[in-house]
Amino acid sequence: MADKMATRQAYGQVLVEIGAKNKDLVVMDADLSKSTMTAEFANVYPDRFFNMGIAETNMYAAAAGIAHTGKTVCASTFAMFAAGRAFEIIRNSIGYTKANVKICATHAGITVGEDGATHQTFEDLALMRTIPGMTVVNPSDGVSAKELIRQCVDMNGPCYIRLGRAAVPTFYAEDDEIVLGQGNMLRGGRDVTVIATGIMVAEAMAAAEELAGKGIDVRVIDIHTIKPLDEEIIIRAAEQTGKIVTAEEHSVIGGLGSAVAEVLVKNCPVPVRMVGQSDTFGESGKPDQLKEKYGMTAKDIVHAVHSLGL
């Protein structure tokens, strides 16, 4: 866990890599290219980059139009203004038309930090996973972000890729197997399973380490693909460990926790605790302060595990 990298930084780098091979890749942004990191692509391939200004709804409908002429489009802005502001455009012009658009949304969740509540989205995974045919991805580190973005660009159809502002520890190795739609068991365990996504995977690993010191054997699964969800790995975890904690930098309403609960209630009902943003808005602060205040740290996962009687 030596290196740290924000998943948005990984996005900027991998776009340039993909752009060299895939001449049909078009990138769009809404005046945030230096923050979303699409500026790197814009510098190298200016002819295939379109800054659409501060007009997200037009950007996503136009992205659908470009895609329907045979291009692959990565269109970026902050998650709040992609999944939030442009939701209905994404639903009708991208989802319903099966447009080959990758919505690469950065600055998701509480770790946006100082910008505060208007920019901290906790609803995007919930919104995006209700759209039929939408692939929803939430990478946990730089290495997996690059690999999952490559796979999203290679598939034909709409994808929502959730990326973060803050640097996060890199724990995948370049040659680890990372496959869209397949969860990764990062740590084996028999007593309880923590199913985590995005930046909460690193917190889950830290929690598992701490709990190991107390004799509690924790399994950790990275669900980087929220949809289609790897139901098998979740059901197996429930059957084998009997207790589940979910962890996400997202509202506990509608996101990973809900998705996992939907699977378990049908297949293997076991006690579940959800770590995430409770039903409340955020505020300004440093990312680490906010994670602590709003209950999205390793400590909160440890508490959740204990609340299951362990």
């Binding site: 078009v26 002819d47 295939r48 379109f50 709804t57 037009n58 409908a61 136009a62 992205a63 659908a64 139009g65 470009i66 895609a67 329907h68 002429t69 045979g70 291009k71 209905e88 455009i89 009708n92 012009s93 319903y96 038309t97």
Partner: peptide, 26 residues
């Protein structure tokens, strides 16, 4: 050429198609 119904979006998508055609020399 484009599923429409939610107003304004077909116009924006048409702009995207115009960009796409120009890029491809169509």
């Amino acid at each position: 050429e484009m599923s429409t119904g939610s107003l304004g979006q077909g116009f924006a998508a048409a702009g995207g198609m115009a960009i796409g055609c120009k890029l491809s020399g169509d």
